[in-house]
Nucleic acid binder design. Structure first.
Lengths: 161, 161
DNA sequence: TATTGTTATACTCTATAACTATA
DNA sequence: TATAGTTATAGAGTATAACAATA
């Protein structure tokens, strides 16, 4: 089989993901306006509000960033009064990130615009197709994320690279 | 509706895309080995072989990178003997990028490994789900790419940001 | 000894602007 | 005057290592 006939050349997964992620970042960043750290800050705040992350390291793993980057990110979110660092009584090495009322309000006000921007990203797809795509993406990404979490638990952070 | 109940928090498009693209880059980069510029170099070479790009600028638009980055990328691909720059007789400002025999051979040898790595990225999905996801991604990305091309034709490169 | 978070340093990548040559 | 390609510079982002506090 010649390379030109190969499926990955005609249906390039990396290219599709890259194009869509770029479109997502451009549109959602514009929709967010002044939001600190743009889409990353938004996703961090949303993940904290969703719960399940009892340390900065856990949150960093979820977002796929290094713990050193997480420090700067939380610094800036805290400086804007959107989150607070609370020491975890169960393990005083950890800091629990909690969303302030101001952070919650900002997230709420941004929410509708973000959803609209996301729909623009998938503008070529009909509503049922969008739902199917989001569901499949979520399923594939969640499994991958779990893999990474397991690796992270085993050796180092499992991040970066 | 509270932010926590909002669809974009439970089914976060940006997060899914980011996780999958990261997984794609990690696995495919490992599969490619010494390939110059990793996944970007591979995608560039594949796009050239697929045809339809008669200038570096056109190729840069397809890959979503700036023309200045494209110069360095082509420099290194050419230094490795994978492509050649040929002046376009129709417009001598443009350089046509053509794949050498060596480039074609390298791409061919990498092809199978890349396909296998891509399947690992979507490891959580059954075969029909993978096909559906790739198809939907391709459809959404192609439309977005077309949008960008139109914008690019209108004003500047339409890239970066 | 290992882990969480922080800080400092070096490196990579990218954005911007200037320049050449062609149109 | 505008575009394709190149080059140089500055900035943003990232990785790495070292450190303090806690387990």
């Amino acid at each position: 089989m010649s390379p030109v006939d190969s499926p990955d050349l005609h249906d390039d997964l990396g290219w599709s993901l890259g194009v869509l992620l770029r479109s997502y970042r451009d549109r959602v960043t514009a929709a967010l306006g002044e939001f600190p750290h743009g889409t990353r800050g938004y996703e961090a705040l949303a993940a904290v509000l969703r719960g399940g992350h009892d340390s900065q390291l856990s949150l960093a793993g979820h977002l796929g960033i290094d713990r050193t980057v997480m420090t700067y990110l939380v610094d800036d979110l805290e400086a804007e009064g959107l989150v607070e660092r609370k020491p975890n009584p169960a393990d005083r090495r950890q800091r629990q990130i909690v969303v302030t009322d101001r952070g919650r309000a900002l997230l709420e006000s941004a929410c509708d615009r973000v959803v609209a921007a996301q729909d623009e990203v998938l503008g070529a797809l009909a509503a049922p197709e969008r739902a199917a795509l989001r569901s499949l993406l979520n399923k594939a990404a969640t499994a991958t994320g779990d893999d990474e979490s397991r690796e992270a638990a085993g050796a180092g952070t499992g991040l970066s690279s």
